[in-house]
Computed example of a mutant assay.
Amino acid sequence: MQKTFRRYFLGFTLLLTANCLLQTACKFNPNMQKPGEAALQGEWQQDTVALQKKLLNYSLYHFRFSCDSFFVSVNYHSKANGGYPDSCVKNGQWAEYAKGVYRQMHDTLQLKGLFCNADFSYKNEGGCFRSGNYNEVFTLRKKTDSVIQFFPTTSVIPFNGRLIKRSTCIPKPL
């Protein structure tokens, strides 16, 4: 009985290994960056928010896309501190940063990464504001070659991003 079990187990293991080699899920990750979306390569700055002087809170995005990677800084402005200590909220203004990889499918841009410090180092848990995973999804509408309208899924207010510096993807080793 034990001999039969060993044979079946060995056969199952070999079948699973052979099947895994044929499946894309079992391939190693590439050792080079992917090229990303050519139209997004470069730095994009959000235009000012309509009626921002009348709003209690608003944020301004700055994106940098390089190949399949992104770096985003979000500058927050608030007339109320939102429950954060005064040491975190400097005169109602603060920034959060994140980096990671992005994927665009049709008109949907998905950003997946981690919160980080302004110098790209990963942010430790605790302290001011958010840390850990950063996930954000936008619907994009191209207005011109240098203006894209972003529709965040976490907000009802779309915004325009203006291209301030074009770049070309030169994939780097990971």
Rank of each mutant, 00 (worst) to 15 (best):
F138A: 03
R130N: 14
I157C: 01
P152T: 05
N133H: 07
G127P: 10
G126A: 03
K143Y: 04
C128V: 05
V137M: 14
N117A: 10
S131F: 01
V147L: 11
F138R: 08
D145P: 07
I157T: 06
D119M: 10
S121H: 06
P152W: 05
F120D: 04
S146N: 15
N133P: 08
D145C: 03
G127Y: 07
T144A: 06
T139N: 11
G126I: 03
E125M: 12
F159W: 02
F151N: 06
I157A: 02
S131G: 01
F151M: 05
K143P: 06
S146I: 12
D119C: 12
D145T: 05
D145N: 13
C128W: 01
C116P: 09
V137S: 15
T139P: 00
Q149S: 01
G132S: 02
E125N: 15
G161F: 01
T154Q: 01
P152I: 05
D119R: 10
F138C: 10
Y122I: 13
L140S: 08
E125Y: 13
K123H: 09
S146Q: 14
T153Q: 09
I148M: 11
N160F: 00
N117W: 08
G132L: 01
D145F: 00
P158W: 07
G161C: 13
T144Y: 04
N135T: 07
I157S: 08
